[in-house]
């Protein structure tokens, strides 16, 4: 499989701040790649380097086989971008902005544009200054999704959208995946990334700390178990991979590393299980753990 985006050892400093610190990122062609991190982790900086808006201090970045700083115009013909903070020209209507950005990219699909306006319930006749934040975001989304490009770069594209529109957005991204487009989706909303992404990279303090499929990352996560047993629990406390064990009589609550689940369950069964509740690991938890480490 070829790489749509391949970044290695990227460094970018703003004065004393080291925004990117040896960042690696690999996005394969045709995948929806989640780019996760809290505010200020360096997501937008990475994206702006990929767009040739900022220049990296060191490291290499390749985008669709080209150099994002040198081959800017040629590469931009093949991608569409939605910024996290969309500002529109106060006296241009939403429709005018959509058409402008589409034309600058070399044309947009008229039918798709109309369909998206309807799905996102956006009135294109309003002037830029009268749109709410969510509606400004929709203008940029419609412009990007209705253009005919290979790569979509979306920087926290759903900030300001309500849950209904968030669902519409997810449908649209699934459509794009079926069309074979590559999507880089930066986000700090985990549910969104879990619902959409084939692979995920997690970035913290300008450095990529984890990358892989959601299944890969689950090896790093824990499952929460609570059970009522026939007799007092035995041997659980000493078991490798069991954390935060709380035992009250015949009831136990604990967390277990997802890859040690099998052993823990065997131990429970040996005491006789009356009820069992297990909560699957969420990215949320994985995410929190990574940032707890940072604190």
């Amino acid at each position: 499989m070829t790489s749509a985006i391949s970044v290695s050892g990227l460094v970018k400093t703003f004065g004393p701040t080291r925004a990117l610190d040896d960042l690696d990122l690999n996005v394969q062609t045709g995948e929806v790649h989640g780019f996760l991190g809290p505010n200020g982790a360096g997501k937008s900086t990475t994206i702006r380097i990929l767009l040739g808006l900022l220049r990296a201090d060191s490291g290499t970045a390749r985008l669709l086989g080209g150099d994002p700083w040198k081959d800017t115009a040629a590469l931009h013909r093949r991608l569409a971008y939605v910024p996290g903070d969309v500002n529109l020209w106060p006296n241009l209507t939403g429709g005018e902005v959509i058409d402008l950005l589409g034309r600058l990219r070399g044309g947009l699909r008229k039918q798709r544009r109309e369909e998206l306006l309807e799905r996102f319930e956006l009135d294109p006749r309003k002037k830029g200054r009268t749109y709410s934040k969510g509606n400004r975001q929709k203008v940029a989304l419609v412009a990007a999704l209705s253009s005919d490009v290979e790569l979509l770069i979306l920087d926290e594209p759903t900030s300001g959208l309500d849950p209904l529109m968030e669902a519409v957005f997810q449908d649209c991204i699934n459509d794009e995946r079926e069309r074979g487009r590559t999507v880089l989706l930066s986000s700090h909303i985990l549910a969104e990334v879990e619902a959409l992404c084939d692979r995920v990279s997690i970035i913290r303090n300008g450095h990529c700390v984890e990358t892989g499929t959601l299944a890969d990352l689950r090896h790093l996560t824990r499952t929460s178990i609570s059970a009522e047993l026939a007799g007092p629990p035995n041997g659980l406390a000493n078991l490798d991979g069991v954390h935060d064990l709380v035992a009250e009589g015949n009831r136990v609550k604990f967390e277990v590393d997802s890859d040690k689940l099998d052993l823990a369950l065997k131990q429970l069964v040996s005491s006789g299980v009356r009820t069992l509740t297990s909560q699957p690991p969420t990215l949320e938890e994985l995410f929190l753990r990574h940032y707890e480490d940072a604190k």
């Binding site: 429709g95 005018e96 959509i98 058409d99 402008l100 600058l104 294109p124 309003k126 002037k127 200054r129």
Partner: peptide, 19 residues
């Protein structure tokens, strides 16, 4: 402020700057 056109004819940076 009034409603404006639903579509636009601007297609170049110069067109936008002119506007």
């Amino acid at each position: 402020t009034r409603l404006g056109p639903a579509g636009g004819t601007i297609g170049t940076p110069f067109g936008l700057a002119w506007r």
